[in-house]
């Protein structure tokens, strides 16, 4: 029982992060390898805001999300847009460079010390017994609920709003959209904003549950196989992929070898790449575009 709870909780974190990868990839065909670092940066921003506004999580969290979204928009205009027309991988490497800069800056600004967001936000992470041999904490429930809510919201956004439709159109064929007289860069920037916003949600939840320190960025790198296994262009694929990867990881830890925990997502990824390289829900054409 606890096993499955652990899988679902871990999957919810992965799904939140994978959503960011997918949003960004759909928008700008870029794999954002700084996603984990941006998630960490958002968490540190939350930490700083929380030091100014202690115990007011209702103010801290929206402020953090807003700030993170603005950072996302800024990144698109400053670093990604100038890379248009250049080899795709160059843009990916720009995100890698960005991640390295963030790692350095975080240490410079916030020191390498471990911080606890939960204390600052005055959140008590209580344990709830779901069944004999199966407990879950308040924040873990929050993580699952938020992940599901976010995916529902994104699905609605892409189906019913004009901007959502435009973003789908831009994902499919940006030049055609430009032909219709729409500045797709603005749409891409919005997508980046949304993506970094979701990263901030994941970051705040994850670091409140666990700890805030420089190594949490690693979880971003581990979530990236999730996005690929699900299909880089497919939001719907991210949910089952997150469950699959989390299942593989938790199984590896509990039944095979704990040291496999970092490797497990990538083993799943390799298997997926060999069997179904376009992902669970992607289409083979996706491969041609990369």
């Amino acid at each position: 029982m606890q096993f499955w709870i652990n899988v679902v909780v871990l999957a919810s974190t992965y799904a939140l992060l994978a959503a960011g990868y997918v949003l960004i990839y759909r928008a700008s065909r870029v794999l954002n390898l700084a996603h984990g670092e941006l998630m960490m940066l958002a968490a540190y921003l939350a930490f700083s805001i929380a030091t100014v506004l202690p115990k007011q999580s209702l103010a801290v969290i929206p402020l953090t999300l807003l700030l993170a979204a603005l950072i996302g928009v800024g990144i698109y205009y400053l670093f990604i847009r100038p890379m248009a027309g250049r080899p795709l991988f160059s843009a990916v490497l720009v995100t890698v460079a960005m991640g390295i800069v963030i790692q350095g800056l975080v240490v410079l600004v916030w020191t390498p010390r471990v911080q606890y967001l939960a204390v600052l936000l005055d959140i008590v992470n209580q344990s709830h017994q779901l069944a004999p041999g199966g407990a879950i904490s308040t924040l873990d429930i929050a993580s699952i609920v938020v992940a599901l809510a976010l995916f529902a919201a994104l699905a609605a956004f892409f189906r019913y709003t004009r901007i959502g439709l435009l973003m789908r159109a831009a994902a499919e064929n940006p030049l055609l959209l430009a032909q219709r007289g729409i500045d797709f860069h603005r749409l891409y920037a919005i997508a980046w904003g949304l993506a970094i916003g979701t990263a901030a949600v994941a970051g705040v939840l994850y670091t409140t549950t666990n700890r805030l320190e420089g190594t949490v960025a690693l979880i971003g790198l581990k979530a990236f196989p999730v996005a690929l296994v699900g299909g880089l262009g497919s939001l719907a694929g991210a949910l089952p992929a997150a469950l699959l990867v989390a299942l593989a990881e938790v199984t590896a830890i509990q039944y095979v070898d704990p040291l496999l925990s970092n490797v497990a997502p990538f083993v799943v990824l390799l298997a997926a790449l060999l069997l179904r390289p376009w992902g669970l829900f992607g289409t083979p054409e996706e491969l041609e575009r990369v």
């Binding site: 670093f79 460079a97 390295i100």
Partner: peptide
């Protein structure tokens, strides 16, 4: 940390 950040900046700078 300075080294790290600078390395990232240089790498990004050359790319851009």
């Amino acid at each position: 940390a300075v080294n790290y950040a600078l390395f990232g900046l240089l790498m990004g700078g050359f790319l851009l």
